[in-house]
Write a protein that binds this DNA or RNA. Structure first.
Lengths: 346, 346
DNA sequence: GATTAGCAGTCATTGATGGAGAGTGCTAAT
DNA sequence: ATTAGCACTCTCCATCAATGACTGCTAATC
């Protein structure tokens, strides 16, 4: 395609993203100082329209990008605009020094995505079942209660208090046995293990069996993937602005809050490279009227940004990439060090 | 006030809550079989209007309750409608058997409030600083890492891993010392304690000092009150329906998600009895166009329902009361038993 | 052959107009 | 105190015409 036509398409997408108004040949001439006449631009526009990259809402209206047009724009024209350094810095700082349990970390990440992009941000937790067991620890709290802590590569997975009158010695024994058997195994193996042994009624000591039962229930509860979404309110006015039906818009927000459905979808579509799904490119019916920019991180985790089709893709891409890599790094770090440490910890 | 006028007011509020349409004398006559003429009802309406309990949107429109009218309705006419038994049961069951960390429990409670009321539900966490320390436990995970678990009356408050090469014996010693000193004290005392001792540079063993530092940072982090809000999307269409401005409506939702501002407000207004704040009765500007039904629970926790002024107060009251008492009971229980136990725990 | 000026044609948007219908308040009768 | 009847008010909706923003086409120009 000739350079000027590309330029015209880019300008149309750009301007439309900014203003939300159909773009006329006049406007284009005025805002971006091009040295051709409006008629020439109109001719180019006709060609672009024939290729299905832009369209008119009615015969004498200005032009608006089609989804195919956005796609073209995203594929060829996005120049990853650097985030405004200062704003980034302030936010990132608060992020870096927060020392958190993994759930809280992911929630904060979603928050950051939302705030930096000004759309909705989401983070699907990693597949914990792909991480390996670091340790299982039993601690006697008092005469009747025992605390159990399960730690994986990514930090503490779960803790719980069970009632049990075991002596300290017995606890140590159980603990040593379990750790020797299970340390270093993937959590899904551990779960399978726990399940099998919990069912072998009389094979083992009832104490060990109780421990397996606990392990099983804790893992079943915690291996569920969690979805953290933030900034959904900010998205809503934008969707309505776009001519979206109110009920449909709420449907979208509800979907994004539904860990099961949305998580499943993300899982199926994600890849390590940042990508966009624009409008009808989305397989999920409810998402047909918005766009998704997202990438994989860590152990099959997914994060990204959800916005209207008329989204600032350039910003969305750079934010997602940046935050994604950052989170990746943090998780890798906590992995290397075993588990996160507390700020000020000795 | 004469009985028939009361009846008319009740019918107007009732009908308006249901349909959202201004109520005419005709409608009232048709829907509720009263044996007077429409003219009589109109006369009553004029009186009610003079008292400021109802109003017209324009001279020849039907009547609509004023906030004062709702207030009257709430104070005198709410008959706590029993929740539909079956629906309640199904939901409550899933609630009862979920064995959870306190944060998750509160989140679920907010979810229940939202679902049962069909408005937005919120739960402000209890003041943990008013609860008492049950125990502090240190566990050596491996050569370099030590796990610290802080348990209060309401369950596990926080856990963290710190890097420290202490021997098992040293850990036992520190642990015994801290527990002897601090067990049974209120968490705010514990925090003050930790702060003081962490600053006494050379007084104590650096190890103990590290422990105090940890305690301080963990408590500072965790004693913040948390706000769990659910069902906000469901509220939005209702607010818009009510003629609310979109931006304002989003403002409201943002406010309710803001733990700091909204929490502070709830804290200042709450009392152990369920109560409603209707429209402009709210001191918080943003909330002037909606209504709050809420009560206190546990250690200065607050929970309730946020809806439009045209809210089904009867339902909101019964849901809030029911869930509030239920949560109260669960917390009291976990208090008595020390901490929550895991389902299937030995 | 690509670009441009000029112009007729298209269509959303806006504001004015008027009739229909719903509901009230008042008056006079019961 | 209640009721029937009626005039009055005000919203809601559809219709209509004027306005103005853009385009597509044609013919002239570089």
């Amino acid at each position: 395609m000739e350079d000027r036509k590309k330029w015209v398409l880019k300008a149309i997408v750009d301007h439309y993203i900014r203003t939300g108004q159909p773009v006329s040949s006049q406007t284009l001439l005025g805002e971006y100082g091009l040295s051709v006449s409006s008629a020439t631009i109109r001719n180019d526009m006709m060609d672009l329209e024939e290729q299905g990259l832009i369209r008119k809402e009615y015969s004498s209206a200005g032009r608006v990008p089609t989804e195919k047009g956005y796609r073209f724009f995203v594929d060829w024209l996005v120049e990853l605009s650097e985030l405004h350094r200062q704003a980034e810095h302030a936010l990132i700082e608060s992020y870096r020094f927060q020392r958190l349990e993994i759930g809280e970390l992911l929630r904060q990440t979603a928050f950051l995505l939302a705030n930096l992009s000004s759309y909705a941000g989401f983070v699907l937790s990693p597949r914990l079942e792909e991480t390996r067991l670091e340790s299982i620890t039993f601690v006697k709290l008092d005469a009747q209660n025992v605390l159990v802590v399960i730690v994986s590569e990514l930090g503490i997975i779960d803790h719980a208090v069970i009632r049990s009158a075991l002596s300290e010695a017995e606890i140590r024994e159980v603990s040593a046995l379990l750790n020797a058997t299970l340390r270093g195994r993937r959590l899904d193996e551990v779960r399978a293990f726990a399940l099998r042994f919990a069912e072998e009624e009389d094979w083992y000591d009832p104490i060990v069996r109780g421990a397996f039962l606990l392990l099983k229930s804790a893992l079943e509860r915690r291996l569920e993937r969690r979805l953290h979404a933030e900034g959904l309110f900010r998205l809503l006015p934008r969707l309505l602005e776009e001519g979206q039906d109110l009920a449909d818009a709420c449907e979208i927000l509800a979907l994004v809050s539904d860990a099961h459905r949305f998580g499943r979808y993300l899982e199926s579509e994600a890849s390590p490279r940042v990508q966009a799904l624009i409008g009808k490119e989305n397989a999920l019916r409810d998402l047909r009227s918005c766009s998704l920019v997202f990438m994989e991180y860590g152990f099959s985790g997914v994060l990204g940004v959800l916005g209207p089709i008329r989204m600032d893709y350039s910003k969305a891409f750079s934010v997602t990439t940046y935050i994604g890599n950052r989170l990746q790094a943090i998780l890798a770090l906590s992995h290397r060090e075993g588990v996160p440490t507390v700020e000020g910890g000795a």
